[in-house]
Design a binder for these strands. Structure first.
Length: 590
RNA sequence: GGCUCCUUAGCUCAACUGGAUAGAGCAACUGCCUUCUAAGCAGUAGGUUUCAGGUUCGAGUCCUGAAGGAGUCACCA
């Protein structure tokens, strides 16, 4: 398939050459989509080239336009000030449409290399919440995008399964659990364990209050607390692999994993590689020792090991404590090494909140100083926190939005709304349950992915369950509508389109089809799924406008009818594909 | 306090990386179902892009400063 933009770039470059004897690399020629209020498909801005053409903006645009008019791709042009608006010829658009046959292969990149995307990374002491959902959806969508763009992707999940917080849950269960299990209580495993984490906190605070009432300061109370000391002792026992503690730890974690699995399944996210901090937390020490030996790091008098990042505009960072134990950074250095040794990736993406911007800046810098082959490939995909209308989510104040509850709520709203519209006759119960899932989860996913990942976003519960306007539901509806038209027309195969005159909306649709490849590549490069949201929304909106303005099945001119059916078919295929990249499914009817 | 990021319509978000008259959705208002799905379409209204300077043909976008907000600066992860 010839590429319209590339062709135009070459024509313009050629025009500069023959008209002005100026050499301009075709790739550097920027063609913008012409704004709605002007006539044209693509706009070339001549201002930056005036020094070389030595002509007024209008005249420069005029002669360039005149010159490229000789090419088939160029239907017409108009000039407004320094803007050359180019109309691509109908024939070229039709050719483009006819060439667009294999939608699965369309826009795919190839041979980009291998990349690991680490995301989700939960703690095993409590269930997932809204913040995790954003992380999971982002990680999954970005993985899809990279894959589409030609990367071999390894989706990884580094589970924080150890530490004092898990010991708190364990201790609380031991003391107050009475042998209850998720089975015996009918609770989801992660919620079950989470409830003991909450229980610990409650008991601990009661103890602190009692101690403080007897005259202790807060700090004294915290150090005296029998409960907290028991938790600490338990962590120590765990580190010594005490059989009993270890068994309890494994049992409780397995409950949590059962629960997580349900949530992940429902969210539709997957992983190729699991990592557990219990297996990685001791790593990295020998790398630090090596760095010390090579003079990249230094040791302080107390025996602790540091890296000096002041020359890089940062400060000194601890790598090993005086007692030789490792810290978060040490562990992450070790994990990075393992990841690389196992998969030899060219790039390693960490989907982690922006509160860790500094941490990852340091991690990358250290890897670079150590001369690690994977150092430059470290990329922190930093995303903003999710706020609620009341402000930040705080687990202590119980304002955390639980992932499972939220999904339930979304699906329920979908069910209710679908019931109100009463368009479900002929659907059996399996199809209906499926439909509610598709709509409810789609709405949630789109709502979270729509916003630029880097930005902090507001989660408004009322707005999030909205199923109108810029929502997944609107887009899914457009898909179902396309399918309905195709069913009614009995159309299954693409037809070749002959010569036909295009109206504005038909042309816009083809132009959108054409831009899919560019938009997905851009989204993959910037690892920004919101660009796909924008694209697919624009596509759906344009199709709906077209649908309302022009008859499709009732069109009497056969060529015209074939064209419109083909537009309908390709629209549905690209909507489905775009949404699939985002992890959102589509219904055949709704 | 140092560093990093944010501030666009009443609300939630865009603006293709410096281009034309800053666009969508929600909320409000007006029309459109005997016609391929009205979860839709067409339209009205809504803006000193936080403020003050600067850079240039041209600034929401770049530079400086101010105000407001967030994050981080742990021998937590």
């Amino acid at each position: 398939m010839s590429d319209i933009i590339v062709d135009l770039q070459h024509h313009l470059s050629g025009a500069f050459h023959s008209l002005f004897q100026v050499e301009i690399e075709p790739e550097t020629i920027k063609l913008d989509k012409t704004r709605k209020e002007f006539e044209g498909d693509y706009t070339f801005v001549v201002f930056p080239y005036l020094k070389q053409t030595m002509m007024k903006p209008e005249d420069t645009a005029q002669v360039l336009g005149d010159h490229i008019l000789q090419f088939d791709e160029v239907g017409s042009y108009n000039v407004i000030k320094g803007f050359l608006n180019i109309n691509v010829s109908d024939g070229t658009w039709i050719d483009t449409l006819n060439a667009l046959k294999d939608i699965e292969a369309y826009g795919r990149g190839k041979d980009k290399g291998k990349v690991m995307v680490e995301y989700s990374s939960p703690n095993t002491n409590k269930p997932l919440h809204l913040g995790h959902i954003r992380n999971n959806l982002l990680g999954y969508a970005v993985s899809n995008l990279l894959e589409h763009d030609g990367w071999e992707v390894v989706k990884a999940n580094l589970v924080n399964d150890r530490g004092i917080h898990i010991c708190k849950s364990m201790l609380a269960w031991q003391r107050f659990g009475n042998g209850e299990t998720p089975e015996s209580t009918g609770m989801k495993g992660d919620h079950f364990v989470g409830s003991y984490y909450v229980r610990f906190d409650k008991e601990y605070r009661a103890e602190l209050e009692q101690l403080m009432a007897s005259g202790m300061t807060k700090e004294e109370a915290e150090n005296t607390s029998e409960l907290m000391n028991a938790a600490r002792a338990m962590l120590l026992k765990w580190e010594q692999k005490d059989a009993e503690v270890y068994a309890l730890w494994q049992k409780m974690n397995s409950w949590v994993y059962d629960g997580f699995e349900v949530t992940y399944d429902r969210l539709g996210v997957k992983f190729d590689q699991m990592y557990y901090e219990s297996e990685t937390y001791l790593l990295g020490k020998d790398i630090v020792e090596q760095g010390l030996h090579d003079g990249v790091f230094f040791r302080k008098d107390d025996g602790s090991v540091w890296v000096d990042l002041e020359p890089d505009g940062l400060d000194e960072k601890l790598l090993l404590r005086a007692d030789g134990t490792s810290v978060y950074m040490t562990q992450d250095i070790g994990t990075a090494e393992i990841k690389y040794n196992q998969h030899h990736t060219d790039k390693s993406v960490y989907v982690v909140g922006n509160e860790q911007d500094y941490h990852f800046k340091v991690l990358k810098l250290i890897a670079q100083k150590l001369g690690k082959p994977y150092a430059d490939g470290i990329f922190h995909l930093s995303y903003g926190m999710v706020d609620l209308p009341e402000g930040k989510m705080k687990s202590r104040e119980g304002t955390v939005v639980d992932a499972d509850d939220l999904m339930d709520e979304m699906i329920n709203t979908a069910k209710q709304r679908t019931g109100e519209l009463g368009k479900t006759e002929g659907m059996d119960s399996v199809e209906l349950v499926d439909l509610y899932d598709t709509i409810g989860l789609g709405a949630l996913k789109y709502y979270l992915l729509r916003v630029d990942a880097a930005k902090r976003m507001l989660f408004n519960p009322e707005e999030s369950i909205d199923l109108q306007g810029n929502t997944a539901t609107f887009i899914q509806y457009t898909y179902a509508r396309c399918k309905s038209v195709l069913r009614a027309g009995g159309i299954e195969e693409r037809t070749f389109i002959g010569e036909v005159e295009l109206n504005d909306l038909e042309r816009s649709l083809i132009q959108l089809f054409y831009s899919f490849a560019e938009r997905t590549a851009e989204a993959a490069e910037s690892m920004n799924p919101s660009l796909i949201c924008q694209y697919v929304y624009e596509l759906a909106k344009t199709y709906n406008g077209f649908y309302n303005a022009h008859p499709i099945l009732k069109e009497t001119d056969e060529n015209q009818r074939n064209l419109r059916l083909t537009l309908t078919m390709v629209s549905s295929e690209l909507i489905e594909k775009s949404l699939r990249l985002l992890g959102i499914s589509v219904p055949e009817r709704m």
